[in-house]
Nucleic acid binder design. Structure first.
Lengths: 133, 133
DNA sequence: TACATGGTGTTATATTATAACAATTTAAAT
DNA sequence: ATTTAAATTGTTATAATATAACACCATGTA
């Protein structure tokens, strides 16, 4: 896990899309993003997906794989872009990024049967949030 | 009353599709499955997706969320249908189900900041497999 | 019998994502 | 400052993934 943190200056499209996701209280889907930024001149899916790809790559956002949705990173300035953990409420779909030093250490150090270590992982927990219980 | 440990007798379509996935050395995608079972009379995507949904539900297969692909469960007769962990080689795309008592215990007992426990999770590790290193 | 449940077959459509190509902007290296 | 490579953009078209809706059928059971 790289800890150096290069400052990426976002391009116009990237900034527009990041701002939207960052403001959103819940993960956003690509076509919902598209709909929301059309008034700003972003008209095609590819423009959205390209910005999303880049934002994921530099760790500003994460993809919630099981939901095909994107959420802004709120985890220590995105230092763990490739080692993510989320909790997902199966009723209200609330998604929260988990920042647990213990968990990330455990997973970063996990070795499989072949002694293989993995620096990248994505973990999604499912359950009921406080409200929905 | 709920029958405990019901032995799920697979229906014809479910069996056909499970057999195909089970024989496959790699995760299979839905439309690849469809292509492969058309000669057996399964002609429409929905027939595939319905079988897949059921097979996932009863733990015979798992979905690799980051790849939109399905793999047969080889983990203690599917007792951990909802608590899955995989390693994925980013070069050759080989996917292996991880069965580590330590890992599953750690995750099953993991509590987030609110003390929330999760019985279901999906974890995907990314890296390079032995061959690809 | 009737009824509930779950599976099937089918057509159509929704949703998610990428290919291909030309033009433009940006950063940096002469 | 000018050149140049890399990244980004805009655009049209299309590929890949997944579900809606509806009619019908099989099976278990009240």
């Amino acid at each position: 896990m790289k800890t150096m943190h290069k400052e990426h200056t976002l391009t116009k499209n990237q900034q527009i899309i990041f701002d939207l996701i960052d403001k959103s209280p819940e993960p956003m889907k690509a076509y919902s993003i598209l709909f929301n930024v059309q008034k700003k001149g972003i008209k095609a899916p590819l423009q959205v997906y390209r910005a999303l790809d880049k934002l994921v790559e530099i760790g500003k956002i994460h993809k919630i794989e099981s939901r095909n949705a994107f959420i802004a990173c709120h985890n220590s300035s995105c230092q763990v872009a490739n080692a993510t953990a989320f909790s997902i409420c199966e009723v209200c779909e609330k998604v929260t990024e988990i920042s647990s030093v213990g968990l990330s250490k455990y997973l970063a150090n996990f070795k499989d049967k072949d002694g293989m270590k993995y620096s990248k992982y994505n973990l999604e927990f499912f359950g009921l949030c406080k409200k929905c219980r």
